[in-house]
């Protein structure tokens, strides 16, 4: 029974994530950018913009300039999350890809550092007056959700082992639209339910910062306003009468 419920939930959550995100990206992409607003230091070439976006997305360059605590903790969290996600590919691939095997030991400990980063970020949210002031209940809940996901995952890895072989078979089954049996493990259920919640809220919440950063005009525009005329379609229409 649980296997079927989880299967339905997973299909639903995945669909919502993919459709929701694609819809958001479509909205961002179709919304015009009427003016040139890159912030200094703005690159003057496309290559420069690509480099700037890479530094921003991979190294969180602006955050680094702002505050080393927030930068360190979020870099720790995001970096660890990336490793953890890559490690989790082993539950969806058979045979497991070579490089996924290679990072397995790092991926395991990344779970711990991810938890550490999250707790640090939450600590700041609670104890730093300015950040407490700007926090909404959903900001706390989002961190709690991620902490819950990390903690339940780590518990299964290091304390109460779950039958990962069956879990893997179940998910590979799901990918082939074939519903097998999911081990009846409360910890696993919790872990999966929380992951699904995350997938569902992603396109409706501040997690949109992930696609959003790529569409941020202050970061992705070239500084060439004097060299090339930039004009939005709705603004061009105003010129019809001139």
């Amino acid at each position: 029974m649980a296997s079927i419920v989880f299967a339905i939930l997973f299909y639903f959550a995945t669909l919502l994530l993919v459709v929701g995100l694609l819809y958001r990206i479509y909205i961002y992409a179709r919304t015009p950018v009427p003016l040139k607003i890159p912030t200094t230091p703005a690159p003057t070439t496309t290559g420069g913009v690509v480099l700037r976006m890479m530094r921003e997305v991979v190294f969180f360059e602006s955050l680094f300039k702002s505050n080393l605590w927030i930068w360190g903790l979020s870099a720790l969290f995001h970096g660890s999350l990336a490793l953890v996600l890559m490690r989790h590919l082993r539950y969806f691939t058979d045979p497991v890809w070579g490089w996924v095997d290679l990072i397995q030991p790092f991926g395991m400990y990344a779970g711990l550092t991810m938890l550490l980063g999250l707790c640090g970020l939450w600590w700041r949210r609670i104890f730093v007056e300015r950040i407490r002031y700007i926090s909404t209940p959903s900001d706390h809940l989002m961190l709690l959700l991620l902490i819950g996901i990390a903690a339940s995952g780590l518990m299964m890895k290091f304390v109460v082992h779950t039958d990962v072989i069956s879990v893997k078979e179940y998910f590979i089954g799901l990918m082939q639209f074939n519903i097998l049996t999911l081990p009846a493990d409360p910890l696993l259920f919790m872990h999966l339910l929380m992951v699904m919640s995350l997938l569902v809220v992603f396109p409706f919440s501040k997690l949109l910062h992930a696609p959003g950063v790529f569409f941020s005009p202050t970061r992705n525009q070239k500084d060439d306003s004097r060299e090339k005329r930039h004009i939005a379609a709705w603004a061009k229409k105003l010129e019809a009468s001139e």
């Binding site: 958001r24 909205i27 961002y28 919304t31 015009p32 950018v33 009427p34 607003i37 602006s62 955050l63 702002s66 505050n67 927030i70 979020s74 700041r124 730093v128 300015r130 950040i131 700007i134 926090s135 909404t136 900001d139 501040k206 949109l208 910062h209 959003g212 950063v213 569409f215 941020s216 005009p217 202050t218 939005a232 709705w234």
Partner: peptide, 24 residues
């Protein structure tokens, strides 16, 4: 404005309340 300015639209969605700007 949300339909005319991508900046406004993206900026409304993307903030995570990290506090990087809070003392600037």
């Amino acid at each position: 404005l949300l339909s005319k300015y991508r900046s406004f639209k993206v900026f409304m969605d993307a903030c995570v309340h990290c506090g990087a700007c809070s003392d600037k």
